[in-house]
Simulated assay, not measured.
Amino acid sequence: MAELIDPTVRLQASVLAAVNEFREDRDYPTPWFVNDVDPPALTDTAAFAAYVKRVLSELGEAAGRADWFVPMTTLWWAEGDQMLGRLAIRHRLTPPLEKAGGHIGYDVRPSARRHGHATAMLAAALPIAHSLGIRRALLTCDETYTASQRVIETNGGQFIDRVGDKRRYWMPTS
Rank of each mutant, 00 (worst) to 15 (best):
M1C: 06
A2K: 14
E3F: 04
I5L: 10
D6Y: 09
T8D: 14
V9F: 01
V9R: 14
L11S: 05
S14E: 04
V15H: 13
A17S: 09
A18Q: 07
A18K: 02
V19E: 12
E21F: 03
F22I: 02
F22G: 06
D25C: 11
R26V: 07
R26G: 06
Y28G: 01
Y28C: 07
P29S: 08
P31N: 04
P31S: 02
P31K: 09
P31I: 03
N35G: 14
D36H: 04
V37P: 09
D38R: 10
P39Y: 00
D44Q: 07
T45N: 05
A46K: 14
A46V: 10
A47P: 08
F48S: 07
A49L: 00
A49M: 01
Y51C: 03
Y51F: 10
V52E: 00
V52N: 01
R54P: 00
V55R: 12
S57I: 02
E58C: 09
E58K: 07
G60T: 13
G60A: 09
E61Y: 04
E61K: 13
A63P: 06
A66W: 01
A66Q: 07
A66P: 02
D67I: 02
D67S: 15
W68N: 09
F69Q: 13
M72A: 15
M72E: 15
T74I: 04
W76P: 10
W76C: 08
W77A: 09
W77S: 10
A78Q: 05
E79W: 00
G80M: 08
D81L: 11
M83Q: 12
M83D: 04
M83C: 15
L84D: 02
R86G: 01
R86S: 08
A88L: 03
A88P: 00
A88W: 01
R90K: 10
R90A: 03
T94D: 00
T94M: 00
P95M: 05
P96V: 03
L97S: 14
A100C: 08
G102Q: 06
H103D: 10
H103E: 03
H103V: 08
I104H: 13
D107N: 15
V108M: 11
V108F: 05
V108R: 08
P110C: 09
A112M: 04
R114W: 00
H115P: 01
A118T: 04
M121G: 06
A124R: 15
A124N: 14
A125N: 14
L126D: 09
L126Y: 04
P127I: 06
A129C: 09
H130C: 10
H130S: 14
H130M: 03
G133V: 03
R136V: 04
A137E: 10
L138F: 10
L139R: 08
D142K: 13
E143P: 05
E143M: 14
Y145P: 00
Y145K: 02
T146M: 08
A147Y: 00
S148P: 11
R150H: 15
R150T: 05
V151T: 15
T154Q: 13
T154F: 05
N155Q: 11
Q158S: 12
D161Y: 09
R162E: 11
V163R: 12
G164N: 13
D165I: 06
R167Y: 09
P172R: 10
